[in-house]
């Protein structure tokens, strides 16, 4: 029991927070140099899942990637530290709820803790996506071919590909004439497991306009032809991703925004109150009232200190 309590206190200590944050900063500084000097080791992080990268590039180039392993370890400790600190602080806050003048002031005091929970959710979301999702690059699809989407029962085909080219008159530079300016691809997603969509659901994709179906996203990476003079077979090159953590990440972002707004209200609320009370003490000629106001400011400051 004592051991559990000691461990809990260790992970809840603010000294640990400071040390971990300093270590994270130092680790990132070191990582920056390795990242810049060995791009080919870190570039595959874009297409591989976290554990696959750690098992292959990570371990093979350990002299270059060790800082990344350390970073994961530090982030894990920081997450534990955040969880324990938040639980401790929230429990303490609930215990002292009677000291607050109103329920609004009490609720607003949760602002930093809401942000802490959001931070944990963001980390958890990224971890879920990179540990349990998939990221499939270079799925080249031409008309007339039905492709099976790996790790799922879905099938995919290219229905239509419309490429708009720059004309001589609208090209921003003479060299742009005849080059692609916009592309829209119609893809057909066939889902044999779903009676409604077993004949296929049509989706449009373009640059920066992915299509989504059942948690899987289809992104346009490249296409052909890119020039009016190209005579080869038209095709699209797709990235197919599954991000199981995207909802958790979105939840984290929303929660962080709520926490930030609460913090803003909390600060402005206290500042306004302080100003109002100070203003009253300046304007009032009656010495007794002034002394009362000063006392109120003092009390308020003490209360703030307590919280």
């Amino acid at each position: 029991m004592v051991a559990i309590k000691n461990t809990w206190n260790f992970f809840g200590s603010s000294a640990l927070t400071v040390c971990i944050l300093l270590a994270v900063v130092l680790d990132f500084e070191i990582g920056f140099f390795f990242f810049r000097s060995h791009p080919s080791v870190f570039a595959p992080l874009d297409r591989l899942m976290l554990f696959e990268w750690l098992r292959t590039y990570g371990l093979e180039s350990i002299t270059v990637t060790w800082w990344f392993f350390v970073l994961l370890f530090l982030l894990f400790i920081l997450t534990l530290n955040t969880v324990v600190c938040t639980v401790d602080s929230v429990a303490a806050l609930i215990k002292r709820r009677e000291k607050f003048s109103g329920s609004r002031a009490f609720v607003l005091k949760f602002a930093p803790h809401v942000m802490h929970v959001a931070f944990v959710l963001l980390l958890l979301g990224y971890f879920t996506s990179y540990a349990t999702g998939f990221n499939l690059f270079n799925n080249i699809l031409k008309q007339g071919i039905v492709m099976k989407v790996p790790h799922s029962d879905l099938q995919l085909s290219l229905e239509n590909l419309k490429v708009k080219f720059y004309k001589n008159e609208d090209a921003p530079l003479p060299d742009f004439a005849g080059k692609a300016r916009d592309v829209i691809a119609d893809i057909l997603i066939i889902d044999p497991a779903n009676n409604t969509f077993k004949h296929g659901v049509k989706k449009k994709i373009s640059i920066n306009m992915p299509a989504f179906y059942q948690g899987i996203s289809f992104h346009l990476k490249n296409f052909y032809p890119q020039n009016e003079t190209n005579k080869g077979v038209p095709y699209v090159n797709l990235i197919i991703r599954k991000d199981p953590g995207i909802r958790i990440m979105a939840g984290g972002i929303i929660l962080f925004t709520i926490g930030l707004v609460m913090y803003l209200f909390q600060t402005t609320h206290f500042n306004l109150r302080k100003k109002r009370i100070k203003g009253t003490s300046h304007d009032c000629s009656n010495a007794t009232v002034s002394a009362e106001s000063a006392e109120r400011v003092k009390n308020l400051q003490e209360k703030e200190k307590d919280l």
């Binding site: 080919s40 098992r55 093979e60």
Partner: peptide, 11 residues
């Protein structure tokens, strides 16, 4: 373990 080697983007 992995029996993995890479040269630039090739592995």
């Amino acid at each position: 373990g992995p029996g993995f080697q890479h040269f630039g983007e090739f592995s």
